[in-house]
């Protein structure tokens, strides 16, 4: 028996045009590419630190006796104060972002409420630099107490996690210097400058949150 179905293929037996929507261009309101791109990159940084946390927890679970010795020499009150310094730098950074969003690079008076982005970022820089200096002092103390990069598995895990975080903080400090420089160099502080200040603040807050996680794991959970 012959196939009686009509042969309808695309544009074969069809006489009408395909479904057509309004010809007007749709309203597209794109987010800031720099900001979204920075967040996606920070997402990849989450996975970078995931590797470091995995190293730490794996070694900790297979060598608890090394951990018992290594964590006993940690100076927790000192690390807590250093943590608070880093957290306060995030607040200073955010105040700088608010100034940048007001498109105000420089201060209009001595009061903090009149500070511009540059002043707040200098404060952020100082607090971040104190944190790094504190880390270096802590490293020197720990090495003198026998916990070094090459002493045992605990030393390796401790220095690779906190050390990579420290390198991130130093990178952030360099970024702040470049943004502060832009604040001075630019004649008309606009959205491009504000954008770069905001994405550096994203990075800084991220590094801050990573440190809080590191502090909880390395100093509190041990």
């Amino acid at each position: 028996m012959a196939n009686t179905r009509p042969q309808i293929s695309h544009n074969g037996g069809v006489t009408s045009t395909s479904l057509n929507y309004a010809a007007k261009a749709p309203k597209i309101n794109r987010p800031n590419n720099v900001a979204v791109g920075t967040i996606v990159w920070l997402g990849s940084e989450v996975m970078f630190f995931a590797g470091l946390f995995a190293i730490y927890f794996t070694l900790r679970s297979v060598a608890p006796e090394i951990w018992a010795h290594g964590t006993s020499v940690l100076n927790v009150p000192f690390a807590l104060i250093n943590t608070l310094i880093l957290v306060s730098s995030s607040f200073a950074c955010q105040a700088g972002v608010f100034a940048a969003e007001r498109l105000q690079p420089r201060s209009t008076g001595p009061k903090p409420s009149q500070w511009g982005m540059v002043e707040w970022f200098f404060l952020t820089y100082a607090l971040g630099a104190i944190f790094v200096a504190g880390q270096i002092w802590e490293y020197a103390t720990l090495v003198s107490e026998g916990v070094a990069l090459n002493s045992d598995a605990y030393g390796s895990a401790f220095y690779i996690t906190t050390g990579f975080h420290g390198i991130h903080v130093i990178g952030g400090l360099i970024a702040f210097l470049l943004i502060i420089g832009r604040g001075y160099a630019v004649k008309n502080f606009g959205h491009k400058e504000a954008s770069s200040a905001i994405v550096v603040s994203y990075y800084w807050h991220f590094v801050d949150v990573v440190w809080i996680a590191l502090f909880l794991v390395v100093y509190v959970l041990r």
């Binding site: 987010p31 997402g43 989450v46 630190f49 995931a50 995995a54 927890f57």
Partner: peptide
């Protein structure tokens, strides 16, 4: 720990970008 941490932080990675968007 490697798998647990990787999966947990993969969740954070996705949630982080979703939260921002």
């Amino acid at each position: 720990w490697v798998g647990t941490v990787a999966l947990l932080l993969s969740a954070i990675l996705s949630g982080f970008i979703a939260f921002y968007l």
